[in-house]
Design a protein around this nucleic acid. Structure first.
Ligand SMILES: NC(=O)c1ccc[n+]([C@@H]2O[C@H](COP(=O)([O-])OP(=O)(O)OC[C@H]3O[C@@H](n4cnc5c(N)ncnc54)[C@H](O)[C@@H]3O)[C@@H](O)[C@H]2O)c1
Ligand SMILES: NC(=O)c1ccc[n+]([C@@H]2O[C@H](COP(=O)([O-])OP(=O)(O)OC[C@H]3O[C@@H](n4cnc5c(N)ncnc54)[C@H](O)[C@@H]3O)[C@@H](O)[C@H]2O)c1
Lengths: 247, 247
DNA sequence: AGGCACTTGTGAACGAACGCACAAAGTCAG
DNA sequence: CTGACTTTGTGCGTTCGTTCACAAGTGCCT
């Protein structure tokens, strides 16, 4: 479904890590978090079973996921935590720093700017922009709020790669277009709307209203899983995933 | 993968709307939003093609999704917007009001409490709780912040069905357990951790850090879709989805 | 009335993802 | 060095989801 796999093109695969399934990619950050947590607790080695439990998935799925990155892990022993952390980080591209701009300094935009969880991985918020004149020049998380009119200049100058949209829905498409025109190729959209972007740009959407509606649906019918209790399962958030709509 | 379908049981399906696929459920809110937007613009009828474009999906997928709810829609004409809005709303359980409690009145919790998009659908935030003494009794979005020690009482008294976790990860599991024990059966979790819950409770997770990492991954490789431009696609956010881990 | 253009709903083919189960590969004790 | 035990990596059948393509229904125009 998702077009992240290059259509039919590029079938030749010399390197082992070629064409990691989207479902796997979506889980790698979860594994990474579980691993870093284990590392902080002094664990140096984990079996797929233990790590799977930590991450809330089945062990078979975990092993298959990891096998897509290569054969790290030692039979009879397990995986070396630190080494695996490095490998997953590298695969996800977290060894480099990513430069992020947040557009919209409302409730959500400010919460995001203040959030420490970004910088702790390789994501640096380099700019925070808004249209409201009374917000401009206010300082949020050590950054001054800039006028949206500066958007093109800032993106080019700061070499922003990832844009975060936290504005009302009606403004999102226009701002997205401007960001893309200025060179952004990845967008994280919090506005409740569909964005049209050229094919080389990837959009991911976070929509809280949708999440609540899905919960409501399941609660309305059989009350969640349907069985009494027990059973292993995942924690949803996201599944497949890329995005683009004809530009 | 998600346990929302009762294993192998219940194969007989007399009613048309029996066992809607998870992937479909996750898209219904998107259709609903597109439809309400069209309704506001005075549109009374849409074809699957138009609606699909509005929602950012393919028309075949949209028709199949809608067919799971029943045969609303008229051949040769399309769907009546208002009627379809009602049917989807009913299917999602939005005809009743859902009572939500937010735990954690930090940056994110306050942003959520202030967000109008919840109430506009059938979700009412009935309580906002926190542990920090200096936040308690502060007023946010017309609600006083309550002490977490009140959690059990408030959930029972206000008949909270959905709990939202916006606390640090370390406190999330404990608070989740308490909410579940107090009667909550649906949890929306913003803390970056996996929650263990009994089988009858559904958890959905929203993790911004994960989203950024997925964007980084795709950008690091072929730069999104891989092709030059054009092409239809989805906007990701979420896919399958339930959750429970042996209690 | 009949033909025509249009759109839904769905059967069937295809593809992606999951989970089982097991052989291969390693460790460790003796 | 051997043999028992542990755990990875993966081939395979199954399930779930998407896409194609078309028959069946609807409205309109002549
Ligand atoms: N707050 C939440 O919890 C929440 C939850 C779900 C979705 N959202 C969505 O996230 C978005 C932001 O939410 P919020 O609560 O921060 O809203 P908000 O009203 O607090 O903030 C929006 C900000 O965007 C700015 N803005 C408006 N037009 C702009 C433009 N053209 N260019 C630049 N900035 C502009 C406004 O000045 C304002 O500061 C909305 O689309 C909302 O639907 C928010
Ligand atoms: N702010 C963001 O943009 C953002 C983004 C992604 C994830 N998150 C996650 O969301 C959660 C909240 O983020 P935040 O930015 O609001 O953090 P925050 O520190 O601003 O707020 C956390 C709040 O939880 C309260 N709290 C702590 N322990 C508690 C307990 N035992 N019971 C009740 N309340 C308790 C604290 O008093 C504080 O008010 C965190 O887990 C964070 O990782 C936040």
């Amino acid at each position: 479904m998702s077009p992240s796999r290059p259509a039919g093109l590029v079938r030749q695969a010399r390197t082992p890590r070629q064409g990691i399934p989207d479902a796997t990619v979506a889980r790698l950050p979860v594994y990474l978090r579980a691993l870093t947590s284990l590392a902080e607790h002094g664990v140096t080695t984990v079996s797929s079973e233990e790590l799977a439990t930590s991450a809330g998935v089945g062990s078979a799925k975990l092993r298959k996921d990891l096998s897509h990155l290569g054969s790290y892990g030692t039979r009879g022993v397990g995986y070396e935590v630190e080494y695996l952390v490095y490998q997953i980080s590298r695969e996800l591209g977290l060894t480099q720093d990513w430069r992020v701009a947040i557009v919209g300094a409302g409730n959500l935009g400010r919460a995001l700017a203040n959030y420490g969880g970004f910088a702790s991985r390789g994501f640096t918020v380099v700019a925070l922009l808004d249209a409201a004149t009374d917000l401009i020049d206010q300082e949020v998380a050590g950054l001054p709020v800039l006028a949206v009119t500066e958007l093109e200049r800032v993106i080019a100058q700061e070499q922003v790669q990832i844009g975060v949209l936290a504005t009302p829905a009606c403004a999102a498409q226009d701002l997205c277009d401007r960001m893309v025109a200025a060179g952004v190729t990845s967008v994280l959209n919090f506005a409740p709307c569909v964005l049209n972007v050229p094919g080389h740009v990837m959009v991911r959407k976070v929509d809280l209203s949708t999440e609540l509606q899905i919960l409501a649906f399941h609660q309305q019918r059989g009350a969640a899983a349907g069985l009494g209790y027990g059973g292993l399962g995942e924690q949803s958030q996201d599944g497949p995933g890329a995005a683009e709509v004809a530009g």
